[in-house]
Amino acid sequence: MEKMKKLSKTKSISYAKWGYIFIIPFFVVYLIFTLYPQLLTIYNSFFEYYRDGLNVIGPNFVGLRNYKELFTINNAGYVPIVKYSLNTLILWIIGAVPQFLIAMLLALFFTSTRLNIKGQQFFKTVIYMPNLIMASAFSMLFFALFSQVGPINQLLQSWGAVNEPINFLGMTISVRGLIGLMNFLMWFGNTTILLMAGIQGIDESMFESARLDGSNSTQVFFNITMPLLMPIFIYVFITSMIGGIQMFDVPQVLTNGKGTPNLTSTTLIMYLNNFLGVSKNFGMAGAVSVLLFIITAVLSAFVFKTITRK
């Protein structure tokens, strides 16, 4: 008999090393392009480090001074981090409240065997579409449509609803409203589809037995659907919040980065973005990032719990 090939012998036939080999690319890239920059961000937050004209100031170690600055009243009379956090929160709520109400309603419509909605695929396709639209272009579109000489004002004037064009982009309430509207349009379809999947995941017999027990649809909703849907609802809700914290493209483009009027639509990320612009204020930007990180980490902990629980 022919002898077994000697060269094929390895030290062991353990495949463990391949596990490491296969995950190397991910971790190398993660370390260089994400983790190291993140650590650098945190490091920066303790330094005075920015550009003033052509001069670079710093880096000088300043301890917690950057954070202190975020939390103290500035010359304009407000606490930056509080103001921008509130802005972000308000903008998120304006969009998220109708988003979740409508999405819940639609999810119930679509899954109702009694209503038996026709054309579901069409409706789902249409309401999900804005989610894929480039947010900056969508925002630009709203800017053009709602400008003083834009089609919306033209329409209102032709109807005689107003005599003078409305300055939508000059008023806090309308700017915030428009941002909320865009966020609503971009996200309610997505939320509908997720909640729908959640409802469909509930065992059909639950509903049937509740019906047989004599519950009406309201009772079924509050006693069966909602409690069983809760984990998914929480998951979707928190991911929406995390998304809200990252709100940037829409208000940035709509207000040209200025958060007009009077910085009432400047979000946290826009604030961060301003430090990264010409001034390259890595110190302050670092401090804002660290706070962002902490907020999202807390929220993510909840999400993490939902997805790892089996």
Partner: peptide
């Protein structure tokens, strides 16, 4: 899984730098 939710903006400062 734990790093999944960290927004990319958090590393932006260091990245840009």
């Amino acid at each position: 899984l734990a790093i999944m939710m960290i927004p990319s903006q958090v590393s932006a400062v260091g990245f840009i730098q």
